[in-house]
């Protein structure tokens, strides 16, 4: 068959596109300005596709539970976790985090967990959003 792809192409013309148009139907010229507009209620955000259960996103830290055993620092592959010896707690730099959740596995008191938050882009790698403590 010479044009074996043609039936597929015609069928696709009447189907909904596979792509989810996140964050807007047409790419905004400036994402920051677009997000400001969304914050002010002037524009509408098309939500991203939901993440499945067990997704490894931004780390959540339950500070009260932490006993400062530093096991997470020992296994962290990227050195994203820093010890705070005076408080016996830890500090996580998300800019270095590789989201492997190995620290979650090793934690003896389960004070770390992975959330489904994944929109973490920031201009400053030491900004408040990217440090968990």
């Amino acid at each position: 068959m010479k044009f074996s792809m043609l039936p597929q192409v015609f069928a696709q013309m009447f189907k909904k596109p596979f792509t989810n148009k996140f964050p807007a139907k047409y790419t905004p010229p400036s994402t920051t300005k677009f997000l400001e507009a969304v914050g002010a209620g002037k524009a509408k955000l098309i939500p991203p596709i939901e993440t499945p259960e067990g997704f490894r996103g931004k780390i959540q830290f339950d500070k009260d539970k932490c006993i400062g055993c530093n096991l997470c620092i020992k296994v962290c592959p990227s050195g994203a976790i820093e010890s705070k010896p005076e408080e016996k707690k830890i500090k996580i730099y998300l800019a270095r985090c590789t989201f492997c959740s190995q620290c979650n596995d090793v934690c003896p008191v389960n004070c770390l967990s992975m959330s489904n938050e994944f929109l973490l882009a920031d201009a400053d790698k030491y900004s408040k959003d990217l440090i968990v403590e």
Partner: peptide
Amino acid sequence: YLCGNRVTKG
């Protein structure tokens, strides 16, 4: 769904 991330499976 099975591993928790799309590319780096961990």
